[in-house]
Design a binder for these strands. Sequence first.
DNA 1: CGGCTTTCTTGATTTGGGTCAATTTCTGTT
DNA 2: AACAGAAATTGACCCAAATCAAGAAAGCCG
Lengths: 248, 248
Amino acid sequence: MACEDVEPVSLQCNDCPIRHRAVCARCETDELERLEEIKYYRSFEAGQTVIWAGDQMDFVASVVSGIATLTQTLEDGRTQMVGLLLPSDFVGRPGRASAAYNVTATTDILMCCFRKKPFEEMMERTPHIAQRLLQMTLDELDAAREWMLLLGRKTAREKIASLLSIVARRDASIKLRAAEGRMTFDLPLTREAMADYLGLTLETVSRQMSALKRDGVIELEGKRHVTVPNMDRLLEEAGDDSDGGFLV
Amino acid sequence: MACEDVEPVSLQCNDCPIRHRAVCARCETDELERLEEIKYYRSFEAGQTVIWAGDQMDFVASVVSGIATLTQTLEDGRTQMVGLLLPSDFVGRPGRASAAYNVTATTDILMCCFRKKPFEEMMERTPHIAQRLLQMTLDELDAAREWMLLLGRKTAREKIASLLSIVARRDASIKLRAAEGRMTFDLPLTREAMADYLGLTLETVSRQMSALKRDGVIELEGKRHVTVPNMDRLLEEAGDDSDGGFLV
DNA sequence: CGGCTTTCTTGATTTGGGTCAATTTCTGTT
DNA sequence: AACAGAAATTGACCCAAATCAAGAAAGCCG
């Protein structure tokens, strides 16, 4: 339980195929059993709502496989995606009783859940977990603010290019593909989801995708499979050469 | 140093006129001396840049008086404000070497700074500080995401109304004015700053302010002094009845 | 007080992206 | 293979907000 070392990283559950990014590796040996005690799995089908904004939320969770989105909506139905959850991402927050956003599965998804109370107790006993969560939350805050720049000031074309480069990069990091230059990946989102993410309509998304294709910035096979012949060109189109803005 | 109590709140420096919201009241007695050791003040004039994005940042700080903004910019000069710092707000982050945003003083401002290294050491020794910072960061994240909805999906009029209601509320909470209904406050921002906050141009901001005035939603004396005769009406114009979205 | 700058307002015009509507292309399914 | 339903594209038109361009207020300072 005592955990004196410096660099907290991620924690590997016994039977989850991924490493959760939430908790402390150093404490792993001591806390793992306890973690196993309080955890359970839930799976959802594509399109299902995991939780509605405002609902009671008595667990925190880590995405094991699949993709989910965080969205907010106005009464008249306008919706804005405020986050994308990929495997190993963390949902829910200690010290908050109800969910702040709608969480929706966009593909079939498996989540590894921890009951909130015991998780919070574990946090109390294991300071590095709070520090690790702080780190992650600060990263998410940076990503959210990067997204604010995109939503407030970028053109439709720049928005699309930004999203594509983020997905490409995220995909690349998973596959450990170091190469710049040519890059191939599948879009995990429908045109509508992209629109909700970027503050556009799906028609505009479609039009700009076609325009980028016409101009040779991307190639499309089918609707979802994208290849970027020249990554630098795409980044240029995105309007900033920042190497980041991982909301993803 | 040991700090076993539950509810971390804020810390009162010996000679700052405000309570910083960053740290733990329970540890106050023990940590205060040390805090005094590592702290120093810096003041900036209206318009001055406190720090540029990417610069080395070897301190964290709390705003004592005045107002500062966090902004991001694209190469061609388009800028988006991503945060507003009011007295007692916290800037800078443990575990990060360089600033992520431009911080600019919009009024004369006094900041209470703590050198980062010792501050981080204090965090190590005082778990509740990390927990308190986590809490604050989660709140900021919520606010940023609320702002994403505004930037992505609200009309110019709704954006203005949202900003006004946030400033009104923040002002009200400072003055401990419980009354709903009629409300009076000074805008701490120029039209241009409002535009950068809302993802609009200053002309549009000005036009929508005039429109809200014409429609009796607000009254204006001079350019900056606003009174809201009916707070509910303003909230209605803001497009959501959420009682929050404090990016402020 | 009068000149000077900065901030703000208002008008005329343009345009990027929204809206509405009609196809087309992809999934499955039986 | 044929059909159905969902997802995506494309076109025609429109409108909210951007852009361009004067002026009007409000500070500020000698």
